[in-house]
């Protein structure tokens, strides 16, 4: 177990290094941030001063080693634009995205799994067919359009919920979040729904496929032949088996929800990291981009680790010591 985790951490370190090299090279290829940051009529002296101040006068490989040196001391540099520590900037935006992502995943799990199981158990019923048709809709409706519709219906016509922004936060157990205030929830519901729709469809289809597949297996028939009640067969024998693929996909999706909540955050003016990274890419604010990516990669690594550990809990055939990667 500890060997497994240690090996994982080593791999993660290599991954981070490779990622930063790619980002450095990538941003260098796109253009010089100075051209964007400084006004066009600035004098040559001003220009040179700015270049030196940002450390952009050094060759790229040297810039990279300066960055690595600072990284070793926990310093990810200052944002070119905000002149604030990049990591602090990213972390200050992270809670907003995290609460959005978790709310969305919560919706997709609590709605998706029961609906998927229903559709799997009664594939030919009206409800089952409707659920599947709905999931196709959830897959295919463009995210931004669906977000705008939510705003139109619930914020403009019905005026039940605010159209955008993040509500006031409240503190609970030392954590600041909108989840702990009623008004915060009212701001959260629409963007969370918007983000959850696609994931819910995914969970529905995955659950349904798993149920359909598992129901045909001999051990389910054997469980019925033992005289077990239908409830026990479905909620123990079938459910425990479909959880294995579900946990994998939900884990991966949680990562992608955090990383790619950009569209939703933009539509609902949600002050999360998705919006921050888009703005930073526009102005080639390299320290912020790198800090963001480091945080996201770390998060993916942690999620994958948790998924692997959950895997071994759910599936007795998997033992972490045997896992190679």
């Amino acid at each position: 177990m500890s060997v497994f985790i240690l090996r994982r951490l080593m791999q993660s370190l290599v991954l981070l290094c490779v990622m930063t090299v790619i980002v450095f090279a990538g941003i260098y290829a796109i253009g010089n941030p100075i051209d964007i940051l400084i006004s066009a009529d600035a004098s040559q002296e001003e220009y040179d001063r700015a270049v030196r101040a940002l450390g952009l006068d050094l060759p790229l490989w040297e810039q990279y080693f300066v960055f690595l040196g600072n990284l070793a001391q926990g310093d990810l540099g200052k944002s070119f634009v905000f002149n604030e520590p990049a990591l602090q900037l990213v972390l200050s935006r992270l809670p907003a995205t995290l609460e959005l992502a978790f709310a969305a995943m919560l919706i997709s799990i609590t709605v998706g799994i029961p609906l998927g199981m229903w559709a799997g158990l009664r594939p030919d019923g009206i409800a089952g067919r409707s659920i599947m048709a709905g999931s196709i809709l959830g897959f295919s409706l463009p995210n931004f359009w669906q977000g705008l519709m939510l705003i139109m219906i619930f914020a403009v016509f019905l005026q039940w919920l605010p159209a955008g922004g993040r509500g006031p936060t409240a503190s609970f157990l030392g954590m600041e979040s909108t989840l702990f205030s009623a008004e915060g929830w009212s701001h959260l519901i629409l963007p969370a729904l918007n983000l959850a729709l696609f994931k819910t469809s995914l969970v529905i289809r995955l659950t349904r496929a798993g149920v359909r597949e598992t129901l045909l297996l001999d051990y389910v028939k054997f469980a019925r032949a033992k005289g077990l009640s239908t409830g026990r067969v479905i909620f123990v024998h079938v459910f425990k088996n479909i959880l294995i693929p579900l946990v994998t996909v939900i884990g991966l999706e949680l990562g992608s929800v955090i990383a790619f909540a950009v569209v939703t955050e933009t539509i609902f003016a949600w002050p999360g990291i998705g919006k921050l990274i888009i703005d930073s890419i526009f102005v080639l604010d390299r320290p912020v981009i790198v800090a963001y990516l480091i945080v996201i990669v770390l998060m993916f690594i942690v999620i994958n680790l948790v998924v692997d550990i959950l895997y071994s809990v759910l599936d007795p055939r998997v033992r972490l010591a045997d896992m190679k990667s």
Binding site: D218, F222, A225, K226, G227, S229, N241, I244, P316, R317
Partner: peptide
């Protein structure tokens, strides 16, 4: 029927690799 299944009439299946649920002890 459920009361009869498993108690008064039992069944054994062909493939022993498949008849036991892999995730339950």
């Amino acid at each position: 029927m459920r009361k009869i299944r498993g108690r008064r009439i039992a069944m054994i299946f062909q493939d022993p690799m498949m008849t036991l649920n892999p995730v339950l002890r």
